[in-house]
Structures are given as structure tokens and as C-alpha cells.
């Protein structure tokens, strides 16, 4: 195998002006299962696909509540995600203790002087030879004074403010869906937003369907504290994945229970659009190759293979979810 001369630590540049360790860390994000975040004018929604390392195990959590107004979805190394999650929870608690108010989202993800926020934490990892970048991508969704936010926090230490975003394995299909639909998100109701999130997620699902076990959804927004729905919380309502999510949200947030006939339009709508979603899948390898072009050097082909076959990765990258 070609051995890259310039990728042994984060302080060594390649002559092309790249730092491979950072790019490898960004690859780790692509190998985690997909996560989607999107927002309307009033709400932000996170949706993730969960993986189980084995038939006998439970599914790995991917969405974490940070505070009443904020939560994250992670993709990549779960352990790194947990560390950042703990850090963010701490910051929010401290902020609440000192200022008696919720921490503004932008502040949390912003890299600023003495305030070692998430971006800063990630960035420090890219400038110390004995450290490594975090191998996890975060979608930070929340609601503050300025309205709902969806931020993407990259292992490189960059952060971006998004209207809608998807990361993780085969997320290109989800991105394509979001790119086609995002103009309608602004005025969308919470129900619609969740539906869009699940559509996007469905698009990135290679085979099989969304179920209550393999996906989790979280919403946060105006007058709505961060609410995570997975496993037990979802289970009582569930018959099929998309139906259940709609059911559950209608019940929780619209104050009205939608079942059977009332729910049917949602489900048929979702079912009808599935072929289209499958069609998008076809575009995906090309798009992903394009996206991964930056990391074309050593070991790239192998990484890509791992990303593509993420559904059955088994021993390949057991820590990545």
C-alpha cells in the first residue's frame, strides 16, 4: 500500500498544503451512520439512523440533549462525541448557573479567545502534535433568542450555520433531498419538518425501512424544549417507522391525536416518494466521490469502500456510529 509521508501527525503539512490527519478525521464522520438536521422559522429538528453493532446489542444513541434549548446529533467516533457532549452540557449548566439563562447557540459553537468552545476544542486538536482531531461531526440544533439554529461542527474546527444539513454514511442522498426541498422548510409546520427529516433519512437508508429501533428524532423550538424520541418513548406509538413518527408528533405537539385515517395521508405521501428517494441513491456514488476528492491521497480508496458499505461494517470500524 502506498504510504503517505505527510500524515503521521497533525502538525505536518503536505506540499500540496493539506493536513492529512484532519482529512482522515473528516472521513471518520462519513463512516458514521447518517444524521440530518433542519430548521423552519420556529423549530429545529434532528433525525438520525442508529446502528447496532450486533443482533444482540441495543442501538447506539446518536442524539444527545445538551440543555432544554439545545441538542446534538453525532456521526463518527461515538466516544469523541460523548466527550464533546459532556463538555457542552457543562458549559450550558455553567451558563445557566452564572447568568440564569440559556446559552446562545452561536456562542457554544463559536471559537473565541478565552472561551474554549466546541470549535475551539476541535481546533486545538489540530495544532498540537501530541493531539488528534476529534473524529466526530456534530449537528448542533437548538433555539435561542435569534430563533432556531442548525450548526454543523466539523473535526477540522470549522463550523457552519445551516438551513438543513446531513452527515454520515450515504448522507449525500439525504443532502440531495434537502437541497431540493429546503425552500419550503422556512414556513413548514413541525409535522412537516419532521416528515422532511424522515424523508431525508429514508433517502440515505440503503436497504430496509425506517423503524422505531433504527431511527431517533428530536425536536426543539419555540415554546418546545428539546425533546428526544427514541426506543421506549417511541415504542408505544409505533407500528411502522414513518407512520409512528408522524403519529407521535401529532400527538405530542399538535395537541391532537392522529391515527388511522387521519394519519394515512402522511404515510401514503411518504411511501409514494420513496421510489424517488431510491432514485437519488443512484447519483450518490458520483457525488460522494466528488465530495471526497479532497482526500484522494493514501488509503482513500479503502476508506471510501468502508463508507459505502457502512451498513454491514461489522469489524471494520466498530466504534463509528
Amino acid at each position: 500500500m502506498f504510504r503517505n509521508q505527510y500524515d503521521t501527525d497533525v502538525t505536518t503539512w503536505s506540499p500540496q498544503g493539506r493536513i492529512f490527519q484532519i482529512e482522515y478525521a473528516m472521513e471518520a464522520v462519513k463512516q458514521g451512520s447518517a444524521a440530518v438536521g433542519l430548521k423552519s422559522k420556529e423549530y429545529a429538528v434532528l433525525a438520525t439512523l442508529k446502528r447496532a453493532p450486533s443482533e444482540l446489542s441495543s442501538y447506539q444513541r446518536k442524539v444527545f440533549k445538551i440543555d432544554d434549548h439545545m441538542g446534538i446529533a453525532i456521526s463518527g467516533l461515538t466516544a469523541d462525541g460523548r466527550i464533546l457532549c459532556r463538555y457542552m452540557r457543562n458549559e450550558c449548566l455553567n451558563h445557566r448557573y452564572v447568568y440564569d439563562s440559556a446559552m446562545p447557540l452561536g456562542r457554544m459553537v463559536r471559537q473565541v479567545a478565552d472561551k474554549a468552545q466546541v470549535a475551539d476544542k476541535a481546533q486545538v486538536g489540530t495544532q498540537r502534535s501530541w493531539k488528534r482531531p476529534y473524529g466526530v461531526g456534530l449537528i448542533v440544533a437548538g433555539y435561542d433568542e435569534a430563533g432556531p439554529h442548525v450548526f454543523y461542527n466539523c473535526p477540522s474546527g470549522n463550523y457552519y450555520d445551516y438551513k438543513a444539513f446531513a452527515m454520515g454514511a450515504r448522507s449525500q442522498a439525504a443532502k440531495t433531498y434537502l437541497e431540493r426541498q429546503f425552500e419550503s422548510f422556512g414556513g413548514a409546520s413541525l409535522d412537516e419538518l419532521v416528515k422532511h427529516a424522515l424523508h431525508a433519512l429514508q433517502a440515505s437508508l440503503q436497504d430496509g425501512e425506517l423503524t422505531d429501533k433504527n431511527c431517533s428524532v428530536a425536536v426543539v423550538g419555540k415554546d418546545t424544549t428539546f425533546t428526544l424520541l427514541e426506543d421506549e418513548a417511541l415504542a408505544p406509538y409505533i407500528t411502522g417507522a414513518l407512520a409512528s413518527a408522524c403519529y407521535c408528533f401529532c400527538r405530542l405537539f399538535a395537541g391532537a391525536l392522529l391515527e388511522d385515517e387521519a394519519l394515512a395521508p402522511y404515510i401514503t405521501a411518504v411511501k409514494e416518494e420513496e421510489p424517488e428517494a431510491a432514485g437519488m441513491e443512484a447519483e450518490q456514488p458520483a457525488a460522494e466521490a466528488e465530495g471526497g476528492a479532497a482526500a484522494a491521497a493514501g488509503g482513500e480508496g479503502e476508506q471510501q469502500g468502508g463508507g459505502g458499505g457502512g451498513g454491514d461494517e461489522g469489524g471494520a470500524a466498530p466504534m463509528q456510529e
Partner: peptide, 23 residues
């Protein structure tokens, strides 16, 4: 000053200043 440097439009609200001083 920190609020100014962050340049993100956020600033301390009166109740935050009060809470901060209490602490």
C-alpha cells in the same frame, strides 16, 4: 467587551447581569 468582540449580536440582558452579580 467579550460580547462586542464576539460580534454576534448577543449582549447581556439585565436579568443576566443581575444573576451574574448575585453569583
Amino acid at each position: 467587551d467579550d460580547d462586542f468582540c464576539m460580534d454576534d449580536g448577543h449582549h447581556l440582558k439585565p436579568h443576566e447581569v443581575h444573576s451574574y452579580l448575585c453569583r
